[in-house]
Design a binder for these strands. Structure first.
Lengths: 230, 230
DNA sequence: CGGCTTTTTGAGGTTTGTCAAGCATGGTGG
DNA sequence: CCACCATGCTTGACAAACCTCAAAAAGCCG
């Protein structure tokens, strides 16, 4: 079963059976109940995780106590490869927003794996680089776009990343409060509420308590990209 | 001479003489005149650079043509390790803001080096991770801080990174227009101008055309961190 | 000096944040 | 099953931060 998960995640995808076997052999299982933290910002980075079930929030806290959500992770997502680096510390919090199960490797296991399979080091580099580019794009977005478009893009990302298809549209499969969306887009829960209400009135989305369902993706994409109304 | 530069930059610092020799052996030299581009966003990433002299701007362009500056690079800075990854493309522009000289490695040389010295792959991972964390902190800053504090922090970073000590303070050693600071902090040149004028009136900085000198670093730090006036 | 770019400053408008009050929702325990 | 409660959500009024645009001043270079 772990092997299947490895095969499906990007980090191990397409690697040799030997590599997967080695990786699975030294993996451990960990369960984290809803609301609990996998780790905190500032902790020494001892473990690399691959989520099997549940969703978790990647966030930072400002010195003033304000939270910034950098993303949500779901099944098959890799988190904390920084643990491969000696002396590294986690740069953010990872908190379960649902009960989660994950595979995990400690530094020793990771070190052995990377030595035995040098390709894994390049994969790690590629993974971090990819994340870096994504973050860079979001930095640009935050620096140049208005709130409505930022929320539109955040929602589209969430739907792609952790969406669950339903009769009326695609629902974000993790609990998602207005406050969460605000902390993802650098705005306030009030502004998010106003914008979601407006979209709901136009039939673009349907919402509920901690729930957002995207009904008209093309329309939201037009808002996100500022294309002409079709 | 190249070896000396390698020894001083973070990526190669502390590595064995054999590694440095190998790296120097396959390095090439490149000069880039003021205003020209090392590479463009979207180009296939073929080269890794270490700047020897001059300063260069890391920037992105939005689809609407608005520029966002992600940082300035100076001597000893490493840029484009992403070239180690097959098929990667540069995620940003690198443009000389002064005449620059750099050491550069192409993908083939980089591949050979990384294979011969596996530590270099982990170093690369560490470097990208460090940059990632820095970017993440700036993302948080942009999401939560007001303009004045963002400009204060940007200026403090520039002074640390590429500052040149002078009689009256520390000057940012690259040409730095109000527009540049605006594009670094997600605001407009008008707002930057107003804020710099206010700081100059208080004796915190002194400015000129495309020049900023920090005179009272503790005071600017208090603005950046929102500490009480001392 | 003359022409170019950069910078300053002002006036006015828009977006967005702040705060207060009340409403909806979903779970819980009687 | 229903009342209750905690939590999340909505909406309004207002204020503040910031942007936009215009015009003119200042600095630099030939």
């Amino acid at each position: 079963m772990p092997i299947e998960l490895l095969r499906q995640c990007r980090y191990f995808a397409g690697l040799s059976a030997a590599t997967l076997d080695d990786a699975a052999a030294c993996a451990q299982h960990r369960r984290v109940p809803d609301g609990e933290f996998f780790f905190h910002q500032g902790d020494e980075a001892r473990h690399f995780y691959i989520l099997a079930t549940g969703h978790a929030r990647l966030s930072q806290i400002t010195p003033e106590g304000r939270q910034v959500i950098l993303g949500l992770a779901g099944p098959r997502h890799e988190i904390g490869i920084i643990a491969a680096i000696e002396g590294a510390i986690y740069p953010l919090d990872l908190q379960a927003v649902q009960a989660c199960a994950a595979l995990t490797w400690d530094r020793a296991a990771l070190g052995t794996l990377l030595e035995a399979h040098p390709l894994l080091a390049l994969r790690a580099l590629r993974m971090v680089s990819t994340r870096f580019v994504e973050l860079q794009d979001r930095y640009r977005e935050l620096a140049t776009e208005r709130v409505e478009r930022r929320i539109a893009r955040a929602l589209l990302r969430l739907v792609v990343q952790i969406g669950r298809p339903e009769a009326t549209g695609v629902t974000v499969a993790a609990p998602l409060a207005r406050q969460d969306l605000a902390e993802m887009t650098g705005t306030t829960l009030f502004t998010v509420s106003r914008i979601l209400s407006a979209w709901e009135a136009q039939g673009i989305i349907s919402t509920g308590r901690e729930r957002v369902t995207l009904c008209d993706a093309p329309r939201l994409t037009r808002i996100a990209e500022d294309l002409p109304e079709g």
